[in-house]
Design a protein around this nucleic acid. Structure first.
Lengths: 165, 165
DNA sequence: AACATATCATAAGCGCGCATACTATTTAGC
DNA sequence: GCTAAATAGTATGCGCGCTTATGATATGTT
Protein backbone atom coordinates (compact mmCIF):
# COMPACT_ATOMS: atom_id res chain seq x y z
CA UNK A 1 0.00 0.00 0.00
CA UNK A 2 1.48 3.23 1.21
CA UNK A 3 0.09 5.53 -1.40
CA UNK A 4 -3.21 4.84 -3.04
CA UNK A 5 -3.29 8.51 -3.97
CA UNK A 6 -2.10 9.46 -7.40
CA UNK A 7 -0.43 12.80 -7.17
CA UNK A 8 1.88 14.77 -9.41
CA UNK A 9 3.81 16.02 -6.41
CA UNK A 10 6.73 14.07 -4.98
CA UNK A 11 5.49 15.18 -1.57
CA UNK A 12 1.86 16.34 -1.46
CA UNK A 13 2.72 18.35 1.63
CA UNK A 14 4.81 20.63 -0.53
CA UNK A 15 2.01 21.66 -2.86
CA UNK A 16 1.83 25.41 -3.28
CA UNK A 17 -1.82 25.72 -2.36
CA UNK A 18 -1.58 23.56 0.71
CA UNK A 19 1.41 25.45 2.03
CA UNK A 20 -0.25 28.76 1.25
CA UNK A 21 -3.20 27.68 3.35
CA UNK A 22 -1.05 26.50 6.24
CA UNK A 23 1.22 29.51 6.24
CA UNK A 24 -1.73 31.87 6.28
CA UNK A 25 -3.29 30.01 9.18
CA UNK A 26 -0.01 30.23 11.03
CA UNK A 27 0.34 33.93 10.20
CA UNK A 28 -3.20 34.54 11.41
CA UNK A 29 -2.37 32.92 14.74
CA UNK A 30 0.52 35.34 15.13
CA UNK A 31 -1.63 38.33 14.29
CA UNK A 32 -4.38 37.10 16.58
CA UNK A 33 -1.93 36.88 19.45
CA UNK A 34 -0.49 40.26 18.56
CA UNK A 35 -3.89 41.94 18.54
CA UNK A 36 -5.29 40.20 21.59
CA UNK A 37 -3.83 42.75 24.04
CA UNK A 38 -5.66 45.47 22.14
CA UNK A 39 -8.94 43.62 22.36
CA UNK A 40 -9.17 43.44 18.59
CA UNK A 41 -9.66 40.54 16.21
CA UNK A 42 -7.86 40.52 12.92
CA UNK A 43 -10.85 41.58 10.88
CA UNK A 44 -11.76 44.25 13.39
CA UNK A 45 -8.27 45.64 13.03
CA UNK A 46 -8.34 45.47 9.25
CA UNK A 47 -11.60 47.39 9.04
CA UNK A 48 -10.66 49.87 11.73
CA UNK A 49 -7.29 50.56 10.11
CA UNK A 50 -8.73 50.76 6.62
CA UNK A 51 -11.42 53.16 7.74
CA UNK A 52 -8.92 55.25 9.65
CA UNK A 53 -6.69 55.44 6.60
CA UNK A 54 -9.48 56.39 4.20
CA UNK A 55 -11.37 58.71 6.53
CA UNK A 56 -11.88 61.62 4.20
CA UNK A 57 -14.42 64.35 3.62
CA UNK A 58 -16.64 62.40 1.29
CA UNK A 59 -18.90 60.12 3.30
CA UNK A 60 -17.75 56.50 3.50
CA UNK A 61 -20.44 53.83 3.47
CA UNK A 62 -20.07 50.28 4.71
CA UNK A 63 -20.02 49.22 1.09
CA UNK A 64 -17.15 51.55 0.36
CA UNK A 65 -15.18 50.24 3.27
CA UNK A 66 -15.85 46.62 2.36
CA UNK A 67 -14.69 47.27 -1.18
CA UNK A 68 -11.57 49.11 -0.06
CA UNK A 69 -10.68 46.51 2.56
CA UNK A 70 -11.65 43.60 0.30
CA UNK A 71 -13.91 42.16 2.94
CA UNK A 72 -17.28 40.52 2.67
CA UNK A 73 -20.05 43.14 3.03
CA UNK A 74 -22.02 40.80 5.26
CA UNK A 75 -19.15 40.35 7.66
CA UNK A 76 -18.24 44.00 7.41
CA UNK A 77 -21.70 44.89 8.62
CA UNK A 78 -21.51 42.83 11.76
CA UNK A 79 -17.91 43.66 12.57
CA UNK A 80 -18.67 47.35 12.26
CA UNK A 81 -21.44 46.97 14.80
CA UNK A 82 -18.93 45.33 17.13
CA UNK A 83 -16.56 48.25 16.61
CA UNK A 84 -19.43 50.62 17.24
CA UNK A 85 -20.20 48.96 20.56
CA UNK A 86 -16.59 49.49 21.54
CA UNK A 87 -16.96 53.18 20.64
CA UNK A 88 -14.22 52.88 18.07
CA UNK A 89 -16.37 53.84 15.11
CA UNK A 90 -19.68 55.61 14.63
CA UNK A 91 -22.35 54.83 12.09
CA UNK A 92 -24.41 57.84 11.10
CA UNK A 93 -27.26 58.10 8.63
CA UNK A 94 -26.15 58.95 5.15
CA UNK A 95 -27.00 62.51 4.06
CA UNK A 96 -28.49 61.57 0.70
CA UNK A 97 -29.02 57.81 0.77
CA UNK A 98 -31.34 56.68 3.51
CA UNK A 99 -30.37 53.02 3.00
CA UNK A 100 -26.72 53.67 3.67
CA UNK A 101 -24.70 54.61 6.73
CA UNK A 102 -21.71 56.87 6.81
CA UNK A 103 -18.80 55.73 8.92
CA UNK A 104 -16.53 57.74 11.17
CA UNK A 105 -13.68 56.69 13.41
CA UNK A 106 -13.75 58.04 16.94
CA UNK A 107 -10.61 59.58 18.47
CA UNK A 108 -10.27 56.43 20.55
CA UNK A 109 -10.56 54.43 17.36
CA UNK A 110 -7.82 56.40 15.65
CA UNK A 111 -5.56 56.02 18.65
CA UNK A 112 -6.15 52.29 18.93
CA UNK A 113 -5.78 51.78 15.19
CA UNK A 114 -2.35 53.40 15.28
CA UNK A 115 -1.14 51.50 18.30
CA UNK A 116 -2.41 48.21 16.93
CA UNK A 117 -1.01 48.95 13.51
CA UNK A 118 2.46 49.45 14.90
CA UNK A 119 2.25 46.10 16.67
CA UNK A 120 0.96 44.35 13.56
CA UNK A 121 3.67 45.85 11.36
CA UNK A 122 6.25 44.60 13.80
CA UNK A 123 4.67 41.15 13.97
CA UNK A 124 4.52 41.06 10.18
CA UNK A 125 8.17 41.97 9.91
CA UNK A 126 9.11 39.28 12.38
CA UNK A 127 6.99 36.65 10.68
CA UNK A 128 8.40 37.23 7.21
CA UNK A 129 11.92 37.82 8.46
CA UNK A 130 12.76 34.20 7.66
CA UNK A 131 12.50 35.04 3.96
CA UNK A 132 15.49 37.33 4.14
CA UNK A 133 16.08 39.25 0.96
CA UNK A 134 13.51 37.15 -0.86
CA UNK A 135 10.80 38.89 1.04
CA UNK A 136 10.22 41.51 -1.63
CA UNK A 137 9.95 38.83 -4.31
CA UNK A 138 7.44 37.02 -2.18
CA UNK A 139 5.42 40.19 -1.73
CA UNK A 140 5.57 40.83 -5.45
CA UNK A 141 4.22 37.36 -6.11
CA UNK A 142 1.33 38.05 -3.79
CA UNK A 143 0.68 41.31 -5.62
CA UNK A 144 0.69 39.42 -8.90
CA UNK A 145 -1.81 36.90 -7.58
CA UNK A 146 -3.93 39.68 -6.12
CA UNK A 147 -4.06 41.41 -9.47
CA UNK A 148 -4.85 38.14 -11.25
CA UNK A 149 -7.61 37.37 -8.78
CA UNK A 150 -8.94 40.92 -8.92
CA UNK A 151 -8.60 41.53 -5.19
CA UNK A 152 -6.09 44.34 -5.23
CA UNK A 153 -7.98 46.40 -2.71
CA UNK A 154 -8.56 49.40 -4.90
CA UNK A 155 -9.70 49.93 -8.44
CA UNK A 156 -8.64 47.30 -10.90
CA UNK A 157 -11.86 45.56 -10.15
CA UNK A 158 -15.52 46.31 -10.47
CA UNK A 159 -16.81 46.94 -13.97
CA UNK A 160 -19.22 44.20 -12.98
CA UNK A 161 -21.19 42.21 -15.44
CA UNK A 162 -17.99 40.88 -16.95
CA UNK A 163 -18.65 37.28 -16.12
CA UNK A 164 -20.86 34.34 -16.75
CA UNK A 165 -22.28 35.77 -19.94
CA UNK B 1 -7.40 64.53 6.85
CA UNK B 2 -6.97 61.64 4.45
CA UNK B 3 -4.68 59.54 6.55
CA UNK B 4 -4.81 59.64 10.30
CA UNK B 5 -3.10 56.27 10.22
CA UNK B 6 0.63 56.22 10.60
CA UNK B 7 1.98 53.40 8.51
CA UNK B 8 5.39 52.45 7.24
CA UNK B 9 3.91 51.28 3.97
CA UNK B 10 3.39 53.66 1.08
CA UNK B 11 0.18 51.76 0.42
CA UNK B 12 -1.13 49.71 3.34
CA UNK B 13 -2.96 47.50 0.87
CA UNK B 14 0.38 46.20 -0.31
CA UNK B 15 1.51 44.88 3.05
CA UNK B 16 2.75 41.32 2.82
CA UNK B 17 0.50 39.96 5.53
CA UNK B 18 -2.63 41.61 4.24
CA UNK B 19 -2.05 40.35 0.73
CA UNK B 20 -1.24 36.89 2.02
CA UNK B 21 -4.56 36.83 3.80
CA UNK B 22 -6.49 38.07 0.77
CA UNK B 23 -4.77 35.76 -1.68
CA UNK B 24 -5.44 32.76 0.51
CA UNK B 25 -9.11 33.70 0.83
CA UNK B 26 -9.30 34.02 -2.92
CA UNK B 27 -7.50 30.71 -3.43
CA UNK B 28 -9.88 29.06 -0.99
CA UNK B 29 -12.84 30.29 -3.01
CA UNK B 30 -11.35 28.64 -6.08
CA UNK B 31 -10.78 25.37 -4.29
CA UNK B 32 -14.23 25.49 -2.75
CA UNK B 33 -15.77 25.90 -6.17
CA UNK B 34 -13.53 23.15 -7.56
CA UNK B 35 -14.51 20.69 -4.85
CA UNK B 36 -18.21 21.54 -4.75
CA UNK B 37 -19.09 19.09 -7.56
CA UNK B 38 -17.49 16.33 -5.51
CA UNK B 39 -19.53 17.23 -2.45
CA UNK B 40 -16.36 17.91 -0.49
CA UNK B 41 -15.24 20.93 1.49
CA UNK B 42 -11.61 21.91 1.44
CA UNK B 43 -10.81 20.46 4.83
CA UNK B 44 -12.70 17.28 4.04
CA UNK B 45 -10.59 16.92 0.93
CA UNK B 46 -7.35 17.63 2.77
CA UNK B 47 -8.04 15.01 5.40
CA UNK B 48 -9.37 12.45 2.96
CA UNK B 49 -6.39 12.91 0.65
CA UNK B 50 -3.88 12.89 3.48
CA UNK B 51 -5.37 9.73 4.94
CA UNK B 52 -5.46 8.08 1.54
CA UNK B 53 -1.82 8.94 0.96
CA UNK B 54 -0.67 7.68 4.35
CA UNK B 55 -2.88 4.64 4.54
CA UNK B 56 -0.35 2.08 5.59
CA UNK B 57 -0.19 -1.09 7.62
CA UNK B 58 0.44 0.55 10.94
CA UNK B 59 -2.83 1.84 12.35
CA UNK B 60 -3.45 5.56 11.85
CA UNK B 61 -5.22 7.43 14.61
CA UNK B 62 -7.03 10.73 14.32
CA UNK B 63 -4.13 12.31 16.12
CA UNK B 64 -1.69 10.92 13.58
CA UNK B 65 -3.76 12.24 10.73
CA UNK B 66 -4.15 15.67 12.33
CA UNK B 67 -0.42 15.90 12.82
CA UNK B 68 0.35 14.76 9.30
CA UNK B 69 -2.22 17.07 7.73
CA UNK B 70 -1.37 19.94 10.08
CA UNK B 71 -4.99 20.34 11.06
CA UNK B 72 -6.58 21.07 14.40
CA UNK B 73 -7.37 17.81 16.25
CA UNK B 74 -10.74 19.19 17.30
CA UNK B 75 -11.74 20.01 13.76
CA UNK B 76 -10.21 16.79 12.49
CA UNK B 77 -12.50 14.89 14.80
CA UNK B 78 -15.69 16.41 13.54
CA UNK B 79 -14.68 16.42 9.88
CA UNK B 80 -13.81 12.73 10.11
CA UNK B 81 -17.27 12.01 11.42
CA UNK B 82 -18.67 13.87 8.41
CA UNK B 83 -16.50 11.76 6.12
CA UNK B 84 -17.64 8.66 7.95
CA UNK B 85 -21.28 9.55 7.36
CA UNK B 86 -20.51 9.80 3.68
CA UNK B 87 -18.95 6.33 3.80
CA UNK B 88 -15.62 7.70 2.65
CA UNK B 89 -13.69 6.69 5.75
CA UNK B 90 -14.19 4.21 8.57
CA UNK B 91 -13.28 4.64 12.19
CA UNK B 92 -12.50 1.41 13.94
CA UNK B 93 -11.47 0.80 17.52
CA UNK B 94 -7.74 0.80 18.05
CA UNK B 95 -6.26 -2.64 18.71
CA UNK B 96 -4.19 -1.62 21.72
CA UNK B 97 -5.44 1.82 22.78
CA UNK B 98 -9.06 1.92 23.75
CA UNK B 99 -9.15 5.71 23.70
CA UNK B 100 -8.04 5.92 20.10
CA UNK B 101 -9.63 5.09 16.78
CA UNK B 102 -7.90 3.70 13.72
CA UNK B 103 -8.82 5.22 10.42
CA UNK B 104 -9.34 3.53 7.08
CA UNK B 105 -10.38 4.91 3.73
CA UNK B 106 -13.15 3.06 1.94
CA UNK B 107 -12.78 2.16 -1.73
CA UNK B 108 -15.26 4.94 -2.48
CA UNK B 109 -13.09 7.28 -0.45
CA UNK B 110 -9.97 6.35 -2.37
CA UNK B 111 -11.75 6.82 -5.67
CA UNK B 112 -13.18 10.19 -4.68
CA UNK B 113 -9.88 11.34 -3.22
CA UNK B 114 -8.13 10.66 -6.49
CA UNK B 115 -10.76 12.30 -8.65
CA UNK B 116 -10.91 15.34 -6.38
CA UNK B 117 -7.13 15.52 -6.15
CA UNK B 118 -6.79 15.69 -9.91
CA UNK B 119 -9.27 18.56 -10.00
CA UNK B 120 -7.53 20.39 -7.17
CA UNK B 121 -4.12 20.00 -8.75
CA UNK B 122 -5.48 21.46 -11.93
CA UNK B 123 -7.15 24.33 -10.09
CA UNK B 124 -3.94 24.97 -8.20
CA UNK B 125 -1.96 25.06 -11.38
CA UNK B 126 -4.41 27.50 -12.94
CA UNK B 127 -4.46 29.72 -9.88
CA UNK B 128 -0.70 30.07 -9.60
CA UNK B 129 -0.18 30.19 -13.34
CA UNK B 130 -0.02 33.98 -13.13
CA UNK B 131 3.32 33.69 -11.35
CA UNK B 132 4.98 32.21 -14.39
CA UNK B 133 8.47 30.99 -13.75
CA UNK B 134 8.48 32.65 -10.35
CA UNK B 135 6.11 30.02 -9.11
CA UNK B 136 8.86 27.79 -7.79
CA UNK B 137 10.42 30.70 -5.90
CA UNK B 138 7.06 31.47 -4.40
CA UNK B 139 6.61 27.87 -3.34
CA UNK B 140 10.09 27.86 -1.85
CA UNK B 141 9.23 30.95 0.18
CA UNK B 142 6.17 29.19 1.52
CA UNK B 143 8.32 26.22 2.43
CA UNK B 144 10.72 28.53 4.24
CA UNK B 145 7.89 30.09 6.19
CA UNK B 146 6.43 26.67 6.94
CA UNK B 147 9.73 25.53 8.34
CA UNK B 148 10.15 28.70 10.37
CA UNK B 149 6.65 28.36 11.76
CA UNK B 150 7.10 24.66 12.41
CA UNK B 151 4.16 23.57 10.30
CA UNK B 152 5.93 21.54 7.68
CA UNK B 153 3.49 18.68 7.84
CA UNK B 154 5.94 16.01 8.90
CA UNK B 155 8.71 15.76 11.41
CA UNK B 156 10.70 18.92 12.00
CA UNK B 157 8.23 19.71 14.70
CA UNK B 158 7.09 18.16 17.91
CA UNK B 159 9.74 17.74 20.61
CA UNK B 160 7.12 19.50 22.72
CA UNK B 161 7.90 21.28 25.89
CA UNK B 162 10.24 23.63 24.05
CA UNK B 163 8.32 26.78 24.77
CA UNK B 164 7.12 29.13 27.42
CA UNK B 165 9.62 27.98 29.97
C1' DA C 1 -46.07 59.32 -12.56
C1' DA C 2 -45.62 54.26 -12.54
C1' DC C 3 -43.03 50.40 -12.69
C1' DA C 4 -38.85 47.37 -13.08
C1' DT C 5 -34.30 46.88 -11.69
C1' DA C 6 -30.40 47.62 -8.90
C1' DT C 7 -28.29 48.63 -4.47
C1' DC C 8 -27.43 49.19 0.96
C1' DA C 9 -27.76 46.91 4.93
C1' DT C 10 -28.97 43.01 7.56
C1' DA C 11 -31.12 38.29 9.25
C1' DA C 12 -30.31 33.38 9.29
C1' DG C 13 -27.41 29.61 8.76
C1' DC C 14 -23.27 26.55 7.51
C1' DG C 15 -18.39 25.00 8.03
C1' DC C 16 -13.86 26.29 9.38
C1' DG C 17 -10.16 27.44 12.91
C1' DC C 18 -9.44 27.78 17.40
C1' DA C 19 -9.84 28.07 22.74
C1' DT C 20 -11.44 25.84 26.84
C1' DA C 21 -12.95 22.07 29.34
C1' DC C 22 -14.28 17.33 30.20
C1' DT C 23 -14.21 11.98 30.12
C1' DA C 24 -11.89 7.79 29.43
C1' DT C 25 -7.91 5.69 29.09
C1' DT C 26 -2.79 5.02 29.02
C1' DT C 27 1.73 5.81 30.75
C1' DA C 28 5.15 7.35 34.20
C1' DG C 29 6.86 7.77 38.81
C1' DC C 30 7.24 6.03 43.08
C1' DG D 1 0.49 -1.92 42.81
C1' DC D 2 -1.05 2.84 43.23
C1' DT D 3 -1.33 7.36 42.34
C1' DA D 4 0.00 11.39 39.20
C1' DA D 5 0.60 13.03 34.81
C1' DA D 6 -0.03 12.74 29.98
C1' DT D 7 -2.85 11.57 26.02
C1' DA D 8 -7.07 10.36 22.50
C1' DG D 9 -11.19 11.98 21.56
C1' DT D 10 -15.12 14.99 22.01
C1' DA D 11 -18.73 18.82 23.76
C1' DT D 12 -19.36 23.70 23.80
C1' DG D 13 -18.80 28.16 22.14
C1' DC D 14 -16.89 32.26 19.51
C1' DG D 15 -15.66 34.84 15.30
C1' DC D 16 -14.65 34.51 10.46
C1' DG D 17 -15.91 33.84 5.41
C1' DC D 18 -19.50 32.96 2.69
C1' DT D 19 -24.37 31.81 0.71
C1' DT D 20 -29.08 32.84 0.42
C1' DA D 21 -32.90 35.70 1.34
C1' DT D 22 -35.44 39.98 2.75
C1' DG D 23 -36.82 44.89 3.46
C1' DA D 24 -36.05 49.54 2.40
C1' DT D 25 -34.55 52.76 -0.64
C1' DA D 26 -32.59 54.53 -4.96
C1' DT D 27 -32.29 54.63 -9.93
C1' DG D 28 -33.54 53.88 -14.67
C1' DT D 29 -37.14 53.26 -18.21
C1' DT D 30 -41.10 54.28 -20.46
Amino acid sequence: MTGTLNTSYPDPNMSTGLMLWRVTNSWQREIRATLAPFGLTHVQFVLLAALTAMDSETPVTQRDLAEQAVTDPMMTSQVLRALEEKDLVERHPHPTDRRARTLAVTPAGVALANRANAAVEQADHAYFFALGRKRQDFTDCLATLSAAADISGKNGSTSHRTESA
